[in-house]
Amino acid sequence: MSAADQTISDGKLVALTYSITDTNGAVLEQADLPVTYIHGGHTELIGGMDAAIRGKQAGDIIELQLTPEHGFGAHDPNLTFTDDLDNVPPEFRFIGAEVQMQNEAGEVRTFIVTAIADGKLTVDGNHPLAGKSLVVHIRIQEVREPTYAELTAESSGCQLPSTSLH
């Protein structure tokens, strides 16, 4: 296989591992098992990561600094709600509980219980990494032509795990 065959470009299958840290180096999210996607396909990576890894090859390591605007966005205070604990079903009365809420337009969003204090419960619909400056450490594991099955899965909307890199 030539070096060009192993260079990230549109249509190539890319397998990578990554970690996301805060600016102090604390690990916030990590993928030790390679995640794969078709470069230039349906999967959108955060913060200009597509551009940062284009032209790279297996074995390359990339570090990407992301502001909140280029990562998971600014923290939106309009997505945080507090209610009396008595108004919340018992199955949601713990930190980390996921609550599905629907707005008037019928859009559904997952909110996470972030606080319980003084008879009140707070849920937050922001991504847990919203509002944070981040450092993404990427290691390219493999670059190759995708198989027919991998191309078919990509076109049917197969995505990276929902918490990763979107």
Rank of each mutant, 00 (worst) to 15 (best):
residue 61 I to V: 14
residue 117 A to C: 10
residue 48 G to E: 00
residue 41 G to V: 02
residue 75 H to G: 01
residue 84 D to E: 14
residue 112 I to A: 14
residue 39 H to P: 09
residue 57 Q to L: 01
residue 43 T to A: 09
residue 101 M to D: 00
residue 59 G to F: 06
residue 51 A to S: 15
residue 78 N to Q: 13
residue 39 H to R: 11
residue 116 I to C: 10
residue 38 I to L: 14
residue 88 V to R: 09
residue 59 G to L: 08
residue 49 M to P: 04
residue 65 Q to M: 06
residue 89 P to D: 07
residue 92 F to H: 14
residue 101 M to W: 02
residue 38 I to P: 02
residue 115 A to I: 05
residue 75 H to P: 03
residue 65 Q to F: 07
residue 47 G to W: 03
residue 56 K to P: 01
residue 108 V to Q: 13
residue 78 N to D: 07
residue 97 A to S: 09
residue 90 P to A: 15
residue 60 D to W: 02
residue 91 E to P: 00
residue 38 I to T: 08
residue 40 G to H: 04
residue 97 A to L: 07
residue 118 D to S: 13
residue 76 D to A: 13
residue 77 P to N: 12
residue 52 A to S: 12
residue 65 Q to S: 09
residue 75 H to R: 11
residue 108 V to L: 15
residue 109 R to C: 00
residue 112 I to Q: 14
residue 93 R to P: 00
residue 74 A to Q: 12
residue 82 T to L: 07
residue 102 Q to G: 08
residue 113 V to T: 12
residue 63 E to G: 04
residue 98 E to V: 10
residue 46 I to E: 04
residue 112 I to M: 14
residue 98 E to W: 04
residue 61 I to W: 04
residue 116 I to H: 07
residue 37 Y to T: 02
residue 53 I to W: 03
residue 98 E to A: 10
residue 108 V to M: 14
residue 64 L to N: 04
residue 52 A to E: 07
residue 109 R to F: 12
residue 38 I to Q: 06
residue 77 P to C: 07
residue 69 E to V: 08
residue 116 I to Y: 03
residue 75 H to E: 09
residue 55 G to K: 06
residue 53 I to T: 00
residue 94 F to S: 14
residue 85 L to Y: 01
residue 100 Q to S: 11
residue 55 G to T: 08
residue 94 F to C: 06
residue 40 G to K: 03
residue 91 E to S: 13
residue 43 T to S: 08
residue 107 E to V: 15
residue 49 M to F: 05
residue 115 A to F: 06
residue 79 L to I: 09
residue 78 N to A: 13
residue 76 D to Q: 13
residue 77 P to W: 09
residue 86 D to H: 06
residue 96 G to V: 10
residue 119 G to M: 11
residue 115 A to D: 12
residue 113 V to M: 08
residue 76 D to I: 08
residue 116 I to R: 07
residue 76 D to T: 11
residue 115 A to L: 13
residue 110 T to E: 07
residue 110 T to N: 13
residue 62 I to D: 00
residue 54 R to C: 05
residue 64 L to A: 01
residue 65 Q to A: 10
residue 58 A to F: 05
residue 82 T to H: 10
residue 40 G to L: 04
residue 75 H to V: 10
residue 71 G to E: 02
residue 97 A to N: 05
residue 118 D to I: 00
residue 111 F to N: 10
residue 101 M to R: 15
residue 90 P to C: 03
residue 40 G to Q: 02
residue 50 D to G: 07
residue 107 E to S: 15
residue 54 R to V: 03
residue 94 F to K: 12
residue 99 V to M: 12
residue 49 M to G: 01
residue 113 V to I: 11
residue 91 E to D: 02
residue 105 A to V: 09
residue 55 G to Y: 01
residue 93 R to F: 01
residue 57 Q to A: 06
residue 92 F to P: 05
residue 85 L to D: 03
residue 38 I to G: 05
residue 110 T to H: 12
residue 92 F to W: 11
residue 57 Q to I: 04
residue 90 P to K: 15
residue 119 G to P: 11
residue 70 H to A: 13
residue 108 V to T: 14
residue 98 E to I: 11
residue 98 E to G: 06
residue 100 Q to P: 13
residue 45 L to K: 05
residue 59 G to N: 08
residue 87 N to R: 12
residue 69 E to P: 06
residue 75 H to Q: 10
residue 68 P to R: 03
residue 78 N to H: 14
residue 82 T to F: 06
residue 61 I to S: 14
residue 67 T to G: 10
residue 39 H to C: 10
residue 44 E to P: 00
residue 111 F to P: 03
residue 74 A to C: 06
residue 76 D to Y: 14
residue 47 G to D: 04
